[in-house]
């Protein structure tokens, strides 16, 4: 990966005595989909607003596309979390206006608005008033408004909120298409399964601080429990619970999960092969991102022990 598209260094923002973002540092690489995660009130939106030059940081620097947020403003697309459009205006008219403010001339803005309304399936609604659109349709129109000026960096704050499964698929497809075009996406979302599906790397913010940062696969590896999942005949599985190095076993009919102590999954597999027991499948147990999120935020370590608030 080349030069980072977004560089955030030691960013800090306070509201009175409340520290919203504290010493936050991260990079977003060109062409990736980067997950910006965190519980409500963690400081995600404040961070995004500083990236978008809506808020001025108390300390630290933000570099967007190698420039200041203000200079880069027109090359960034932004879909805010709490969003709306002019209710009394027509859909296309609104999109054209917003695109013009992003530096497009009126003709180009009109062409782009028509193309994007078509792409999100709202072509028939172009001349309807925004208030006549359903919530899902408004969401899609707003998505179009964020991307229609062809930004190099796209910041999507909760783009899946309020969408039905069909439209979630549509937005996912559009995101992948945009990524394929070489655009970089920062995705903030609460649907961890979608983040797992879409993101290359993530940053998890809690209480204004970055608590998890890096390759999603590596993080999942780090947080993976030392456990294996085996399926097979019930009576065979029962015998496996007595294997050497197993500290805990959980059997549910033909599926067995073995938690391991000072041994590796490979050693367990070797023991099974040695014993010549027939099994249907064997896999190293992984942890859903959702569980990592919940554990980190509530201060529970992967091994299950409680940690202090500083986690």
């Amino acid at each position: 990966m080349s030069q980072p598209v977004l560089e955030v260094d030691h960013l800090r923002k306070t509201y009175g005595d409340f520290v919203a973002v504290d010493d936050l540092t991260f990079r977003v690489q060109s062409g990736e989909i980067f997950g910006l995660l965190g519980p409500n009130g963690a400081g995600k939106t404040t961070t995004i607003r500083m990236i978008m030059d809506i808020f001025i940081p108390d300390a630290g620097t933000v570099s967007v596309l190698g420039a200041t947020p203000r200079q880069a403003r027109l090359r960034v697309g932004y879909l805010p979390e709490e969003r709306g459009l002019y209710r009394d205006l027509k859909v296309k008219e609104t999109l054209v206006y917003l695109a013009q403010l992003k530096g497009m001339d009126k003709d180009a803005a009109t062409r782009s608005a028509e193309a994007w309304l078509d792409r999100v399936g709202l072509a028939d609604w172009a001349d309807k008033r925004v208030k006549d659109l359903s919530r899902g349709m408004q969401q899609k129109a707003q998505f179009a408004s964020a991307v229609m000026h062809e930004p190099d960096l796209l910041i999507l704050d909760e783009p899946f909120q309020g969408l039905d499964p069909v439209n979630v698929e549509l937005v996912k497809t559009l995101m992948r298409e945009l990524q394929a075009e070489g655009r970089t996406i920062v995705l903030s979302a609460h649907q961890m399964n979608l983040v797992e599906e879409m993101c290359d790397r993530i940053l998890l913010i809690n209480r204004g601080e970055g608590v998890l940062y890096g390759e999603l696969a590596a993080i999942k590896r780090d947080y993976a429990p030392n456990a294996v999942r085996i399926s097979g005949e019930e009576d065979v599985l029962t015998q496996l619970t007595r294997l050497e190095g197993v500290v805990d076993a959980e059997q549910n009919r033909d599926v067995l999960i073995l938690r391991l102590g000072q041994t590796s999954p490979q050693a367990i597999l070797a023991q099974i092969v040695e014993l010549g027991l027939p099994i249907r499948s064997f896999e190293v147990e992984s942890i859903p991102l959702n569980d990592i999120f919940v554990n980190v935020v509530s201060g529970v370590h992967p091994d299950g022990s409680e940690e202090g608030a500083e986690a």
Binding site: M52, D53, I54, P80, R83, G84, Y86, L98, L101, A146
Partner: peptide, 17 residues
């Protein structure tokens, strides 16, 4: 006040000062 209540303001301020 309208732009504030319908949140369009965030998009506007991400484009213009």
């Amino acid at each position: 006040a309208e732009e504030k209540s319908n949140r369009v303001i965030e998009v506007l301020l991400s484009s213009v000062s």
